[in-house]
Write a protein that binds this DNA or RNA. Structure first.
Lengths: 359, 359
DNA sequence: TTGAAAGCGCTAACAC
DNA sequence: GTGTTAGCGCTTTCAA
């Protein structure tokens, strides 16, 4: 039985193994310059005594073998998928991942990120749409840093994004191909993204506008901004679907908002044929047959793996910024038939439904 | 703009404020014995310089103002609700919560818990059904420790559980009142709970057996053990529902398993009237109208708040062990009518359906 | 009420 | 290949 944590120090191990403290230190860090014999003796002493190095003490001089990840909220399943990918990529390594949720009363992230920096983590992963690029450049110069979801052209930190323009396009095109013309985009309030043009939801909104314009539907573009919560999405969707100008489709900025919209559709007794909903992130629940939500997949698990790789590269010394982009895919799940053309008769008939674009 | 982390030390602050290091230390810890004047000067210097104390250094002598929580997996929404409650309870305090997920290839928790202990956290919250009580007693003697979900009669750590016997009873009774007699209990393999009788799922299983026996259905008790995953639950449910002796109801050990069972029901084209499913934990998705899963609520958010309180009490010096119990409630959501008596004709008619027990 | 000084456990630089 | 030693930045006596 390994003692949980005790007052055994490196000194005790050194004494038990009959070597110096430095020797023990080298062994536990797998550092260069130890004989096999010494290594064996030290390892024996370590397990005999149940020695565990104090991370605080290591942090005073060297590394903490800890990586930190900040997420806006632990409630959003997409973020937890990223974490699953990250922990998976770290399994078997010397590194431990710790998670700092920004929390309910959060300030957009800096507080949680600073909490990680204060703890001397060796590197930081973060999903903070709302902090300024300059703030991140400063931080990135002190700590290896990889940001998710920001379309920044950074110098001192890496970024990983999916192509949100393309993702939004895919969503709109999917709905268009189902026959929809009145497609509303339900997204979070820009303030929640720090009013930054490089934030994921800002880019998605832009992609939505572009896609609508491309399809000749520019004048039907409608953005609805809500708080970042299922409940808020539900409320907005209820209002939207009860109003005179009811849209036939809702493209939600992420799956949680989509679930709120679906709840409203259900509560109002509307069928998926009457109102289609598309989400973003392709969280697990979207694929459930009872939900069957079409969603844009950006593979959270793979993103988690990639950002860990980027961060480890930075820790290993890379200093040029990396900017990786993932290609989003439509996960089409609405098994409903396309809406009848009657639903779009208030407009001149569209010529040709380019179904082959749906990929 | 506050610098992210820099090389400003307590020494620099002391110099800027014209005081000693000790004085600064006292101010940032809100310790006794500093004049208002000095406090003001120090605070001014701190914000001027953007000073942030290094947690590692603090950890060498005193506290780290960090609490750690270990969870088996970040995929289960119930655990994230607990974290939401915990972070909420900690908002505005000096403490930061860090999360260590045991991860996909986990060993049941000890590794992640040790990772937290290594980081000198001031206290640990954990949801580890599989570690031995003795191991936890050892740990609890070194670090304030609160365990969730374990029905242990511990001396050196606190516990918070819901009454799993009662919860299982409520689930079985609910199904019984709907007319079900062939009620299968779908739960995780005992090895995943470390084969411990005090583990939550072991207790739930016992509650299921007791409830079945009380209802005169002892000989119809059926336990199905699966891996702790939606996919595994789905597979098992598919097999179960395709077999000759098809049960009319499934009581799942937690909501994720229930979702897998529901998926199987849906995939097989069965209606909720034919096969009822009840879950445990009442995660958010259960209440969604498209899922409408009856579930046993043990209020994860409130549990998070309670364990934080218990942990802070321990940190403040309490040494007697606390053992709190939460009362579970049925969240009845199957709006389907009770199954026809035809479904239970292979048994003598039951006398009286005690519907008033449903609470 | 304030400051001086010791030392927490480790790593890194350097000597042997 | 191995040991010695000087700190890392704090908190905590303890003395003034």
């Amino acid at each position: 039985m390994i003692p949980a944590r005790n007052s055994i120090t490196i000194e005790d191990v050194a004494a038990a193994a009959g070597v110096s403290r430095a020797a023990v230190s080298k062994v536990i860090r797998d550092a260069y310059g130890v004989s096999d014999d010494m290594r064996a003796r030290v390892h024996a002493a370590i397990s005999d005594l149940g020695y565990r190095p104090r991370v605080s003490a290591r942090g005073m001089r060297g590394a903490t073998y800890t990586l930190g990840i900040e997420i806006p909220t632990i409630k959003n399943h997409f973020f937890t998928k990223i974490i699953t990918g990250a922990t998976g990529a770290l399994a078997g390594s010397l590194y431990q991942l710790i998670i700092a949720p920004a929390g309910p009363h959060h300030d957009g992230g800096p507080q949680a990120i600073l909490a990680l920096a204060d703890r001397q983590v060796d590197g930081i992963l973060a999903i903070s749409p709302a902090v300024s690029p300059q703030w991140l450049e400063d931080l990135g110069q002190r700590t290896p840093l990889v940001m998710l979801g920001r379309h920044d052209d950074s110098a001192h930190y890496d970024t990983l994004v999916n192509d949100d323009i393309e993702g939004a396009r895919l969503a709109v095109r999917h709905l268009y191909d189902l026959g929809h013309r009145d497609i509303v985009h339900l997204t979070i309030r820009p303030e929640l993204d720090g009013n930054l043009a490089t934030a994921p939801h800002a880019v998605r909104s832009r992609g939505y506008d572009l896609a609508m314009a491309d399809l000749g539907l520019a004048d039907r573009s409608r953005l609805v901004h809500v708080d970042d919560a299922e409940e808020a999405a539900w409320e907005a969707a209820m209002k939207l679907l009860r109003a005179g100008q009811r849209p036939t489709a809702i493209f939600a900025g992420h799956d949680e908002l989509a679930l709120g919209a679906l709840r409203a559709v259900s509560d109002l007794g509307l069928s998926p044929a009457e109102v289609s909903v598309v989400g973003y992130d392709d969280t697990d629940i979207a694929a459930h047959p009872l939900i069957s939500l079409t969603s844009i997949n950006q593979s959270g698990t793979r993103m988690g793996e990639i950002v860990v790789r980027l961060l480890l590269e930075r820790i290993a010394g890379r200093s040029e910024a990396a900017h990786e982009v993932i290609r989003p895919r439509v996960m089409a799940r609405n098994t409903t038939a396309p809406v009848s053309s009657a639903a779009v008769t208030d407009r001149p008939a569209v010529e040709g439904r380019p179904g082959q674009h749906q990929q």
